[in-house]
Amino acid sequence: MATGKITIGNVCFLIDKNKNEILFLERFFEPMKDLFTGVGGKTNFDEDIHTSCLREINEETGLNAKNLKLKGIIKTILSGHDSSWILFIYTSSEFYGKQIDCPEGKLHWVGINDVEKLNLIGFIREIMPFVLNEDSIIEGTITHDLTGTVLSKKIIEIQ
């Protein structure tokens, strides 16, 4: 039986419904440098998942989000490494504040119709149709390599 490190984390996609845009982070650093993802990160040991997502949004964007909507829970497994994440996926269309430069990458507001043109991390590409569907909630497991390319997946739409 394999053993390894499991990280609890989150990723959030801020959606500006007035402009029909979604906020992405183009990563500055490895792993997955130069690829696009949502904002988010690790949940600290002593914080709840919802609070960690709000903290990560604020740290990476300067914005304060409200009314997070849980879109799913995905386990990601990095093939060939002892690394796995339990990733809570959220959206929010209610946020305020002044956007800042992110220390982890460049923030881009992208038209929802242009999302498929982005150089997305592979497992983010797999979940985006569900993220963008108002009614979808998903769970599953995605195995990927160091570049984020999906090697196998099992995604179940539970709603």
Rank of each mutant, 00 (worst) to 15 (best):
I138D: 12
R27N: 03
G4I: 09
P31Y: 05
I22H: 02
G140T: 14
G111W: 04
D114I: 07
I8P: 02
L14W: 01
N113L: 13
G40V: 03
G40I: 04
M1V: 12
I137S: 08
T3E: 13
N44F: 13
N58I: 00
D34P: 00
C12P: 01
I74W: 06
I73R: 08
D48F: 13
L107M: 11
I112H: 01
V131I: 15
C12A: 10
Q99R: 09
T143W: 06
D114P: 08
T37S: 09
L70H: 12
K154S: 14
I138R: 11
L107A: 11
Q99E: 12
T91S: 01
E157V: 13
G9P: 03
E21F: 07
Q99T: 12
S79D: 12
I74V: 15
N44K: 15
E21L: 04
M1G: 15
A2I: 15
D34I: 07
P31H: 04
M128E: 08
K75A: 10
T143K: 14
I86K: 14
E60K: 13
L35D: 01
F130R: 02
E116G: 07
I124M: 11
L70K: 11
I73K: 10
P103A: 05
K106D: 12
F130P: 01
K98F: 06
K153P: 12
I22S: 05
I121L: 05
W85Q: 06
E21T: 15
E26P: 03
L68Y: 02
S152P: 04
R125P: 06
N119R: 15
E21W: 08
S52Y: 04
P103R: 09
C102Y: 10
I137A: 06
I121Q: 05
D48K: 11
E56Y: 03
G122C: 09
F123N: 06
N119F: 10
W109L: 04
N18M: 06
A2N: 14
N10L: 00
I158K: 14
K33L: 07
N18E: 14
V131F: 00
C53K: 02
T51H: 02
T43A: 09
D34S: 14
Y96F: 15
I77G: 00
D135L: 15
F13H: 00
L68T: 07
N58L: 08
F28K: 06
R125S: 14
L63R: 07
D34H: 13
E126Y: 09
T147F: 07
I138P: 09
D16C: 06
M32N: 07
T147Q: 11
I74D: 01
I57H: 04
G80W: 13
G80N: 14
Q99V: 11
D114F: 11
L63T: 10
C102A: 12
I142H: 06
V131P: 00
I100H: 11
C53S: 08
E59F: 08
G105N: 03
C12Y: 01
L70Y: 05
K42M: 10
I137P: 00
K154D: 14
F95Q: 05
L118H: 10
